[in-house]
């Protein structure tokens, strides 16, 4: 038989331990992506002085492979005396990479706020910070939560890249297990199943959130 249950059960515990790292890396990366993305989107609105360089930065990061960006930081940062472990570098890279995508999501959210809201804030003499914090963002963010959720899943599926900077997340662990026993079927298939299940569950959760938000805006 090609599939050996005994071996599958044997590799399950180390894979589950690695899955914890995958989930941890996903959440940390998403936290960076969501907050940095918001900062990028808001800064870009504050005038051409920011908009120009930020647009170039965003386009640049979106147009080049995450893998190269990760290698680059992993090899180059030490040359500037910054020594970080693989997980930190990897999470930073994924976070920044996806921040540029989240920035676009926030931008559509921000652009959908009617002009009247800004004018009302001016009329009430609110400062820029207050306007954003209390008037604009509370309206702009909820509608884009599902789109952000999709990037959460995207980040989750990007985490196997961490294995190239020596992080023992799921994929890296599976490969090591495979090379030790010369059996790749079980570890890699289990990893695939794990991703599939997690993606389907999160996609369902996002749809539920979406429905909730729709009800709130309609009702």
């Amino acid at each position: 038989m090609l599939w050996e249950w005994s071996y599958a059960l044997e590799v399950l515990p180390p894979l589950l331990r690695a899955a914890a790292i995958t989930v941890e890396a996903t959440l940390l990366s998403f936290a960076i992506a969501a907050s940095l993305g918001l900062a990028l989107a808001v800064l870009r609105m504050l005038g051409p002085m920011f908009a120009w360089p930020l647009s170039i930065f965003i386009e640049f990061v979106r147009s080049t492979p995450l893998l190269i960006q990760m290698f680059f930081l992993y090899f180059v940062l030490p040359q500037f005396g910054v020594t970080l472990d693989g997980l930190t570098v990897g999470v930073l890279t994924i976070g920044v990479h996806y921040a540029t995508f989240c920035a676009e999501v926030y931008r559509t959210g921000l652009e959908n706020i009617p002009r009247g809201q800004w004018e009302a804030a001016v009329a009430l003499n609110l400062g820029v910070f207050t306007t954003f914090k209390d008037v604009i963002l509370p309206q702009a963010i909820p509608p884009v939560v599902p789109a952000l959720g999709n990037y959460l899943i995207g980040i989750f599926k990007a985490t196997p890249l961490l294995s190239v900077v020596a992080v023992l997340e799921l994929m890296g662990t599976a490969k090591i297990l495979g090379s030790e026993s010369y059996r790749y079927v079980e570890p890699i298939t289990l990893v695939g199943l794990f991703f599939l299940i997690m993606s389907l569950v999160s996609a369902t959760a996002i749809r539920a959130v979406e429905r909730m938000l729709n009800r709130r805006t309609v009702g």
């Binding site: 090609l2 599926k157 990007a158 985490t159 196997p160 890249l161 294995s163 994929m171 599976a174 490969k175 495979g178 059996r183 790749y184 079927v185 890699i188 298939t189 990893v191 695939g192 991703f195 599939l196 993606s199 389907l200 996609a203």
Partner: peptide, 20 residues
Amino acid sequence: FRGTSLLVQLFWLYFVLPEF
């Protein structure tokens, strides 16, 4: 293919398929 990671798919085809 949307639910799993591209790298996992790549490795699956590369490492696992030969075993079949």
